[in-house]
């Protein structure tokens, strides 16, 4: 059965574990729906061209730049924004490692790092750098951000007390 959307209308999105209704055009991006329809402003509009990563959210656990995904494409998938993280280890690590300055890129970086820690908890330095290269920080906090994700991955490898 073909799914179709011919004009503006309501769709159901699963965001941060809740079913939410948004009214969008088929051409509206997920970024737009999250910010303008749901007030979830943690995903930041930056380049809106897929370059900067400030709008990164998780879709089914994987980082996705929400400026390059249509809202209607997210139907049937689990979307997690930075508002959906509740004291995740990476959030604490960003504070402890001073992983931000102006903060505009932070939520995008946190989502990328959280996705990495979940999908590849055994990631080595090459994989960490590969994933982090998806996001830009104009304040150049890169080393501190890398320290943050490295500390989270290291702690996840520790045996349980």
């Amino acid at each position: 059965m073909i799914r179709q959307m011919k004009g503006p209308g309501p769709i159901q999105l699963a965001v941060n574990g809740e079913s939410r209704t948004v009214v969008v055009r088929p051409a509206d991006t997920l970024l737009y729906a999250l910010r303008e329809q749901l007030g979830l402003t943690g995903a930041k509009p930056g380049c809106e061209n897929g370059d900067c990563g400030a709008c990164t959210v998780l879709v089914d656990g994987w980082p996705v730049k929400s400026c390059l995904m249509l809202a209607v494409e997210a139907v049937g998938h689990q979307v997690t924004t930075v508002e959906g993280l509740k004291n995740a280890p990476i959030q604490k690590a960003f504070i402890e490692e001073f992983g931000f300055q102006c903060g505009y890129c932070t939520s995008g970086f946190i989502m990328t790092c959280h996705g990495l820690a979940t999908i590849h908890p055994e990631a080595d330095e090459v994989v960490i750098e590969e994933w982090l290269q998806s996001n830009l920080c104009r304040c150049t906090s890169y080393q501190e951000i890398k320290n943050a994700i490295t500390s989270v991955l290291a702690s996840s490898k520790l045996p349980a007390p």
């Binding site: 073909i2 179709q4 011919k6 004009g7 051409a27 509206d28 991006t29 249509l70 209607v72």
Partner: peptide, 21 residues
């Protein structure tokens, strides 16, 4: 934001996709 409007279709078979197109 994408300024133009377009319709969105998600077929479930190659035949449906081609026919829709």
């Amino acid at each position: 934001m994408i300024p133009c409007n377009f319709e969105y279709y998600m077929p479930e078979s190659p035949e449906e996709a081609v026919e829709t197109f």
